[in-house]
């Protein structure tokens, strides 16, 4: 069995004359958290979309779990294989409750068909109960069980983000793609979210690929960081290495982020010591 949960080689995506993703080689080891950073417009979400099948890559190969080639596979099949994601702008099913949103996630793991639905066969009852229970469990896991019956759009922002994750988890992914999960959060919420992400990897064994702009988060929990700029991979390695990489600093044109991250890590180490 391969070490890598995901292996992308030479992935390229063009939109007319613009090359959004340019021959990117990328790997994610099992049960790790991989971070993907880069300035705005670098092609991160486009890369995500190629991985999940929303876009079809023009060139390259994507191998999942050592066995499956993902190029040309439709998104729903990719999800069934075990990749799931959240979205940069929250895209919940607005008219459904939180519980229903998560239950939608269980779709690819259940088999109830028309006959079952119409005649309420034992499978229908069994799977409905299971889906409901599973959804509640997931909501509890992300810490919002009390809001299960609230309509999704009436939830506070932090809850909505967590709901997206719960929904994605319902598909039982081996690899979870998170697109800016802490966007718009205050430091407290960010810490809770970071915590949750780590638990997902440690407890549930889910590999995670994370797009983030908050350097504290990325540098804090990633096992490996990759940097994209203008569609190209310009650096890769441990958080410390990447931060010192001159190409990366140039891409961001600033040392501020670097300093903050260094500061945060120092603080993080102190916290661990005092625990």
């Amino acid at each position: 069995m391969s070490d890598y949960i995901l292996e992308a080689r030479g992935v390229t995506k063009r939109f007319g004359g613009l090359v959004a993703v340019n021959r990117v080689d990328f790997t994610i080891e099992r049960r790790t958290i991989a971070g993907l950073i880069g300035p705005n417009g670098a092609g991160k979400t486009t890369f995500f979309n190629c991985l999940t099948g929303l876009y079809k890559a023009d060139e390259g190969e994507i191998i999942f779990d050592g066995k499956y080639s993902l190029i040309g596979v439709p998104p729903d099949r990719i999800t069934a294989l075990g990749i799931s994601r959240t979205f940069q702008n929250i895209r919940l099913f607005g008219s459904m409750t939180a519980l229903e949103n998560v239950m939608v996630g269980t779709h690819c793991r259940t088999k109830t068909n028309m006959i079952d639905a119409i005649f309420h066969t034992p499978r229908y009852h069994r799977e409905e109960a299971w889906a409901r229970k599973r959804a509640m469990e997931l909501l509890e896991y992300v810490g919002m069980a009390n809001a299960a019956d609230e309509v999704a759009t009436s939830l506070p922002y932090g809850y909505q983000r967590r709901l997206e994750i719960a929904r994605a988890l319902a598909t039982e992914p081996k690899l979870l793609l998170l697109d800016e999960p802490t966007a718009g959060m205050n430091p407290n919420e960010t810490e809770e979210m970071t915590d949750l992400i780590r638990r997902l990897c440690d407890d549930l064994g889910v590999s995670i690929l994370l797009i983030e702009h908050d350097m504290r988060v990325v540098m804090g929990i990633s096992d490996k960081v990759s940097v994209l700029d203008h569609g190209e991979l310009i650096a890769e390695g441990s958080p410390e290495d990447v931060q010192k990489n001159p190409k990366v600093i140039e891409a961001y044109l600033g040392t501020v982020g670097t300093e903050q991250a260094a500061e945060a890590r120092r603080r993080g180490r102190d916290d661990e010591c005092s625990n």
Binding site: D76, M96, A117
Partner: peptide, 28 residues
Amino acid sequence: RLNNSRIGRAWIAMREDEDVAQAMGINT
């Protein structure tokens, strides 16, 4: 009955946001 089942949920999801429904494993 169809509406209150997995099928109904899939339809609603599809109606609300087709791309996300696909991302959640629904064969639209």
